[in-house]
């Protein structure tokens, strides 16, 4: 069965969420959202999914702060973060490039990253763009650091970096990424060429499994319908599902 890159990313992210109790998904995150819902579908209703922009998957009734208070207590097992820049130590930059405060390129801001990165055990970094523009040797501004000294309270941190080209796992002790799998059609040379930081490479390089036929049926069926409540445009454009029939 042919598939789109978005579908490959959904089936790549979903297994990272299976077996967890509670996954939260921030704003403007249709692919992580769909992955969380796929994991929930496969898991027979587990994990619980709290999706910020959703009404159907809204777990919170105490205002915008509740997500963070909930995470601070350890009630959220996985969360997604992105970055205008990401470096090899898993530092992320959501603020801007080239100077601060008068940055040459300004991004919206750090959102909850400077907190969630510390308290959510499994933070998955996600980036659709995998180029030297994003994957840099050193971020210009640290919105949230990838690692902390041992005396800093930090039950959470980076778990993996999933891009349009590959999957990296993060080794918290070594503070480095290691290539975990390469998406179909990509090569190690391509990835090295497009990555501005150094990373570990295993002796045998795995390929990211293509989405199975069953997963594609789920994604284009019940999971797609579910995500279309929050991301109708994504469901229409990528999964070719019309919100009216969803």
């Amino acid at each position: 069965m042919s598939y789109r890159i978005e579908e490959l990313l959904i089936t790549t992210l979903a297994p990272m969420l299976e077996g967890l109790e509670h996954v939260a998904v921030g704003a403007a995150s249709p692919i992580p959202g769909a992955a969380a819902l796929l994991a929930r579908h496969r898991g027979g209703g587990r994990p619980r999914v709290s999706m910020l922009a959703s009404r159907r998957h809204a777990s919170f009734t105490d205002g915008a702060r509740e997500l963070f208070d909930c995470a601070a207590q350890g009630r959220i097992d996985a969360f997604f973060l992105g970055g205008g820049q990401i470096d090899g130590s898993a530092n992320i930059n959501l603020v801007g490039i080239d100077g601060y405060p008068a940055s040459r390129v300004r991004f919206p801001g750090s959102f909850g990253s400077a907190f969630m990165y510390f308290v959510v055990p499994r933070v998955i970094l996600f980036s659709l763009e995998h180029s030297r523009r994003v994957m840099v040797p050193r971020v210009d501004f640290v919105s949230a650091p990838g690692t902390s000294p041992s005396n800093v309270y930090r039950p959470g941190g980076p778990y993996a970096l999933v891009t349009s080209r590959c999957v990296f796992r993060f080794d918290r002790d070594r503070g480095r990424f290691a290539l975990a799998s390469v998406h179909p059609g990509q090569t190690l040379e391509d990835i090295r060429e497009q990555t501005g930081f150094d990373f570990d490479v295993p002796a045998r390089i795995e390929q990211t499994p293509a989405p199975g036929a069953q997963d594609l049926v789920l994604i284009r069926g019940p999971v797609g319908k579910d995500i279309s409540e929050t991301y109708p445009d994504f469901a229409r454009r990528v999964l070719e599902l019309d919100a009216a029939t969803a």
């Binding site: 601070a72 603020v95 601060y100 405060p101 750090s110 400077a114 907190f115 969630m116 990165y117 510390f118 308290v119 501004f141 640290v142 919105s143 949230a144 650091p145 902390s148 800093v152 309270y153």
Partner: peptide, 11 residues
């Protein structure tokens, strides 16, 4: 919690 090591704190 959090924030320690972020450049937000520096500024």
């Amino acid at each position: 919690r959090g924030i320690l090591g972020s450049d937000l704190l520096t500024h």
